[in-house]
Design a protein around this nucleic acid. Sequence first.
DNA 1: TCGGTTGTAACTGTTGACATTACAGCATAC
DNA 2: GTATGCTGTAATGTCAACAGTTACAACCGA
Lengths: 146, 146
Amino acid sequence: MRYSTRLPVATHILLCIALLGGEHKTTSAFLAGSVGVNPVVVRNVLGQLKAAGIVSVEPGVGGASLAREPERISLLDVFRAVEGQEGLFRLHDNPNPACPVGRNVHAVLGKSLAAVDDAMEAQLAATTLRELMDATSEREAMRYRG
Amino acid sequence: MRYSTRLPVATHILLCIALLGGEHKTTSAFLAGSVGVNPVVVRNVLGQLKAAGIVSVEPGVGGASLAREPERISLLDVFRAVEGQEGLFRLHDNPNPACPVGRNVHAVLGKSLAAVDDAMEAQLAATTLRELMDATSEREAMRYRG
DNA sequence: TCGGTTGTAACTGTTGACATTACAGCATAC
DNA sequence: GTATGCTGTAATGTCAACAGTTACAACCGA
């Protein structure tokens, strides 16, 4: 079992807005065409990103834009916006309190799993949208240089 | 969306085998009673742990035991045994190759997400079953000391 | 007012986790 | 050698989450 594709989809959307927003009107239909999903999925993700203060969306006229500089948007911001605050792991529901292991396993394991969550989030926070934009531009440039 | 409860369940099972194996015959029914799940779930998880070389299970006579010292069993070993080798995130399927973002997003994002996977696994590898056993024993001792 | 867009709700198909039942295979006790 | 208890595994049912899709109200600019 693993996470949904929401983080990749949201990141793709942000890259499109950041890199193509000057040349194109970034409507949900346009973004959906690049990402390869249904426009409604784009609108839902944009709604989550808007609620998190990452993008601004123009109702009526159409189009989305970044609400702050790409240097100040990390993958962790995007992750939290679209996946919520819940931890990576879920403890099982019904350990037996009459068993010395069962009555302690949540406390003991919880500490270790929280450390894993922290490590994952620290690594997500280490990448900014700006770095992904630069990496994309670099690859595009290489494409034409050969 | 998050991981299943398999890692916690498997860890709970291992703790029971390690700490209670001396006093009790650790059959799937006994373990299921402590973990609070169906015995078949225990047998399935034990099968995965056995395939990974972490436990030995006695068919016929019944009962399971650790296949190596708890110092040499990390949460990462358990995680890989029950959750497989797949990464945490899944890239979306159909980015548009005609779009400069779409044709690069997998390569660009994949690198960052692989780093997140590595960070998570490193943290999982930092905890051994021995540490969890000691933490459990310590909490049990405190329970009686007050 | 009209055309294009966003914001949502509702329905559907798919997938995975988990519980449960059932039964074949195996090892020990008698 | 049979009975008993356990493991291994297949089949089935339930439930929740994700994602695709349709539909429609709300909104804005020409």
